[in-house]
Design a protein around this nucleic acid. Structure first.
Lengths: 123, 123
DNA sequence: GTTTGGTACTTTGCGCCACATAGTACTATA
DNA sequence: TATAGTACTATGTGGCGCAAAGTACCAAAC
């Protein structure tokens, strides 16, 4: 049974945990509709796909962290413009702390240089 | 249908993507057996549980990134001491690059201060 | 030498969620 | 009206963290 570990999959897995945080971070700066968010994320090298984004936005809205209003567009159907609710702002702040701690922990671990004590076969 | 977004779950999701990288990072510094790894991760505030670690080590071994040897213990059954293979070392280096890019992208995004252009109802 | 407790490894099932894909709805243009 | 473009929705699949239960080995106590 062969398991493959390719970089693409790992990048996707790494993105997975922080998507929520990044999307809230974009919306925090002003009302945005899904295509705005996709574009911002793409520019930041954090590509997110529609099939991921829409369900996530819906979950966040159902959890009361986001709200939206319909805005007419001159070039197609109306758009859902999302913004943070009060509890969304609070949640975002917590996530920011979580991210900072995590990034710090990982950097500490990866920059550790000392070896573990060498092994004898009968310790 | 209520969806809950609690910090514990989000932290777990964030850890998810980087566990592989962190575990390889520990093993990179010298042969280690699972309890070593759990302990190192706990100290680094990146708790990982047995039910997560053992299957992950098995997957990494099956993919040829890790190898192990049995070492007798004076205080219980023998232990599997893991170390990186050549391709494991190579894979770790790629993951390091992936992490650096990701962390950089997230920090850039979260520190962005400018607002998105304000909306009119008929843009 | 049998019991008891600690340590190490394994297996199974569940739940979350990114992603792919297909589908629906609305608008504008030809 | 067709047709194309844009926006949103719904469904299925797979990966994987995690909990929990199970198996195996060892040592000390009796």
């Amino acid at each position: 049974m062969e398991t493959k570990f390719n970089i693409e999959n790992t990048q996707s897995q790494m993105r997975r945990g922080i998507l929520e945080f990044c999307i809230l971070s974009v919306i925090r700066r002003g009302e945005a509709y899904p295509s705005d968010i996709v574009e911002e994320m793409r520019e930041a090298k954090l590509q997110v796909l529609e099939g991921t984004l829409y369900p996530l936005l819906t979950r966040l809205k159902n959890a009361g962290l986001l709200t939206y209003r319909w805005v007419e567009s001159s070039s197609g159907p109306p758009r859902k413009y999302f913004s943070l609710t009060e509890s969304g702002i609070e949640f975002y702040r917590k996530l920011e702390g979580t991210w900072d701690e995590l990034a710090n922990a990982v950097n500490t671990l990866k920059d550790k240089q000392e070896s573990l004590p060498p092994l004898t076969d009968n310790q």
